Computed example of a mutant assay.
Amino acid sequence: MTFIRAYLRASTEDQNASRAKKALEAFANNKGARIASWYIENASGTKADRTELARLIDDAQTGDILLIEQVDRLTRLTKSDWDKLKAAIQSAGLRVVSLDLPTSQAAMTVSASDDFTGRMLDAVNSMLMDMLAAVARKDYDDRRRRQAEGIEKAKAQGVYKGRPADEVLHQKIRELREKGFSIRKTADLAGCGVSTVQRALKS
């Protein structure tokens, strides 16, 4: 039986990395499979050093599946950093399956003894993954550029005030804490990160 390792990532602690968990579970169930291990973290896709992703790769055995929702959950890295990550994934014997890359999903049903089909799929998916990784990085760079341009324009007009606090979220956090939930549980219930909970309690 194929061992599936699911990886969930959100860009910042203000986002909930578990949001896509149901989608991955539904996909695996539809394929008659079960996710054996979860690796969840809040970290930027532009960051090469990610604790949970590194742990997943270290834990992996040849033939395991690395299941993700989208390729950009795995990488928004520069080309050189992506090449290093891809090499580590391949060295661990992992096959990446992504919900937004249909050709990769064939890896769920390829027999371990079918070496030719497996190698063909690996070659095709490696090329497509490179393309999607490049698109993900370009999207990140474009958004950062537009954000910087917008801030500069707002500053020039004297209307830039920085990022406003989410008062509705902060009130919900305070109410959860008053009910006795821990900071970690409060973050999970509010759908935010621990740092957001801590900021709300200080405000």
Rank of each mutant, 00 (worst) to 15 (best):
M1G: 11
A33F: 09
V135T: 04
A112H: 04
T62N: 13
L201D: 05
A106H: 15
K155F: 01
T51G: 14
G93M: 01
A190L: 14
N29G: 08
A92T: 10
A200I: 07
S104K: 03
S182W: 01
N125V: 12
D83N: 14
L128A: 09
R137W: 02
F181N: 10
A28L: 03
V110E: 12
A26W: 03
S91H: 10
R137E: 06
M1D: 05
R9Q: 05
L74H: 04
D142K: 11
D58G: 07
I68T: 11
R177I: 10
T46R: 11
R199S: 00
W38N: 05
D142I: 06
R73Y: 10
A26R: 03
L99R: 00
D81Q: 11
R184M: 04
Q171I: 12
I65A: 08
V197Q: 04
R50M: 04
L94F: 08
A33V: 11
S182K: 03
Q15E: 04
E69R: 09
L53M: 14
R119C: 10
P102T: 02
S195I: 06
E41P: 06
A20C: 13
S18Y: 09
A154M: 14
A156H: 11
K84F: 01
T196L: 00
L8R: 13
A88S: 08
R119G: 14
G158T: 04
